[in-house]
């Protein structure tokens, strides 16, 4: 029997030193396209994720234009989601949803992805604990222990998960994917762990849309927290009380 144990390691001197050392190393190694997300919280690579953080995302729908799929394309490239021309079974981690108000006719366009809920229904229902929430708030699937029961897909209110319906080849090294397991957006956990932003956010920023702001909701001083205070925002299906990590402005 086994379950994901949240990190409870106390912050020690060593930890602080490593944080500073890691931050310094990052400063020195900043390369084009690599953005330092939260300098103060940069973590040494041998240290586990901390529950004091909570990764989150603000979608500014007023800056998201209809027809733009930069975030989706970046995600597909990052995770090797090539698709097999079978839209009903091909995986999608992030999708653009078009909205039209039935009364006023006002339209919006915005990306929908895993909302990284604090109390995620997919985590509750997973029989093996494969669908789990990391200490820092990222919800993902441990595909090593996923049995492919698809209960999480039944439970997710956002349709954020896909099931792999066939054998795959040519997976990308940082995003292992295989037949018979369920997958979904993991906030590009492999990038976040190395102080890079998720691919979708990076693409949106690089294209100067600025519709996606990623950061630490657990840190009141982070750019994301400041933005969340500044702009009115809401959660999708807020009626369910899931405290999602993805927030929307402008709908």
């Amino acid at each position: 029997m086994k379950s994901a144990t949240p990190n409870t390691r106390p912050d020690g001197e060593r930890r602080k030193f490593l944080e500073r050392a890691g931050a310094a190393a990052m400063l020195l190694s900043l390369a084009p396209g690599v953005r330092l997300v939260e300098l103060v919280l940069a973590r040494a690579e041998d240290q586990p994720v901390s529950a004091q953080m909570r990764w989150g995302l603000l979608v500014d729908a007023t800056k998201c234009s209809e027809g733009c799929t930069d975030c989706v394309d970046a995600c597909n490239d990052e995770h090797g989601l090539t698709g097999l021309g079978r839209p009903e079974t091909d995986a999608q981690y992030i999708r653009k949803v078009g909205l039209r108000d039935k009364t006023t006719g006002k339209t919006h366009s915005l990306p929908v992805l895993c909302q990284h809920c604090e109390t995620a229904p997919c985590v509750d229902v997973c029989p093996t604990g494969a669908s789990f929430r990391r200490a820092d708030g990222i919800v993902l699937v441990d595909k090593h222990i996923c049995i492919g029961c698809r209960y999480c897909m039944m439970a997710c209110p956002f349709k954020a998960r896909s099931f792999i319906h066939e054998d795959l080849t040519d997976q990308v090294p940082e995003s292992p994917r295989g037949k018979g397991t369920v997958e979904g957006c993991n906030f590009c956990v492999h990038r976040v762990d190395r102080d890079r932003e998720p691919a979708c956010v990076e693409a949106c920023t690089e294209a100067r849309h600025g519709a996606l702001v990623f950061g630490d909701m657990g840190n009141a001083n982070s750019a994301l927290s400041q933005k969340l205070r500044e702009l009115t925002n809401r959660q999708i299906r807020s009626d369910l009380g899931l405290n999602t990590g993805v927030r929307y402005h402008g709908i």
Binding site: C126, P127, I147, G148, C149
Partner: peptide, 25 residues
Amino acid sequence: DLGRPERLVVAMTYYNFKSIFAWNI
């Protein structure tokens, strides 16, 4: 009908006790 029926042993060794599926096992 599971995606990974050969992993039945995983379902018998890893449990999430908040899952109704796990209770049902």
